[in-house]
Design a binder for these strands. Structure first.
Lengths: 199, 199
DNA sequence: ACCTGAACACCGTTCAAGT
DNA sequence: ACCTGAACACCGTTCAAGT
């Protein structure tokens, strides 16, 4: 026997933290509770994560990776109608956000310097969004359009998860209007572009 | 002299807490630090706020009231072109969010049950947005359109404040595209409405 | 080489005792 | 009637000591 093989893992710790986040909120993600869920004591976690801030950042990164998979799976692909792709991506993200509202809100929460998810995780998750945006408005405006789509989806689902829609009316109808508005508005923006569209 | 007139006030406490939030983040808003800023010890705060959660909620409410003032002041009024009104409101909110990014992010952060700002504060801040939305898409879709506009503005500024736009390109251009996209998309949505527009 | 109990600083909160 | 020090439970983090 080698001396003391790890009784837990970073993966298990992050998963336990994320489950706790969803069940009880970020304040409930304490080192002691996470440790207890993976069958260990709080000090042992420091063998796997630098500190609590790094754990929270890792939870956010894990959520970002899941979003990347969810969006990639939902994208019908480059051959499809851009408006239909946008629709599919937006609904898939909202489905994720309704299943994991606190993880969704964490995606773009300010966690302080050095605590953001690696750029590559964000870039991978954004890829299908940028692709659809390019199909809608052209390559040169693709990044800007992707940001608009992401801002709407993140803002809407964050507000929904926080219970901010309290003035009555159907939240589903509001989301549908958002998708239709963005699809139509971006389609119109393509024709507004002043310079070459490159595709 | 009556015995021991209050040496601080709820207003001063909330203002100190909000300043601290902006300067150092939500984690730095501790009862001891806030108390120190208003010249008192931590236990005294409990004469003015129920607990820390209530203080944070009060800070969020204070921010919401300021947003209400900012938007009301920025709205050129019912006689103006709806697209220009939308533009003015959106830019005013972004100006607020760049001045007070952590307050802006707090506006729709999930603070747990019973910790949301009073409905009336949200309703007052939303009023010009709903008005502009009504001018763009008609009364029956006004609330849904206002939610779309708010979701975009909140999502975009939250992402910007968190440093989420890291893939290059101009953030200003992205915001401009968002405004133009929503104005045009909502204008088009009006014509799409199936039933009476009532106004 | 990882895990643990003990320890420390810090935080939210309560409360009896001051004025 | 508000303010305070003292106290308590809890939390993040470190570290020497186990195995």
């Amino acid at each position: 026997m080698s001396p003391a093989p790890s009784r837990t893992s970073r993966t298990a710790i992050v998963a336990a933290g994320r489950a706790l986040l969803e069940e009880e909120g970020l304040d409930a993600v304490t080192m002691a509770t996470v440790a207890s869920r993976v069958g260990v004591r709080a000090p042992s976690l420091y063998k796997h994560v630098r500190d609590r801030a790094a754990l929270v950042a890792a939870i956010a990164t894990d959520a970002g990776e899941e979003v990347g998979q969810v969006l990639a799976a939902a994208d019908p692909g480059a051959g499809s109608d851009p408006a239909a792709r946008l629709d599919g991506l937006a609904r898939a993200f909202r489905t994720f956000a309704r299943r994991s509202p606190r993880s969704a809100a964490l995606l773009f929460l300010d966690l302080g310097p050095g605590a953001a998810a690696p750029v590559e995780v964000g870039a991978r998750a954004a890829r299908p969004v940028v692709e659809v945006a390019a199909a809608l408005v052209g390559q040169d405006r693709a990044l800007a359009a992707a940001r608009v789509l992401t801002a709407f989806a993140y803002g809407f689902t964050s507000m929904e998860g926080a219970g901010a829609f309290r003035l009555g009316g159907s939240v589903d109808v509001s989301f549908d209007l958002g998708i239709a508005t963005l699809a139509e508005g971006l389609r119109a923006a393509r024709q507004t572009a002043a310079t070459g569209e490159g595709g």
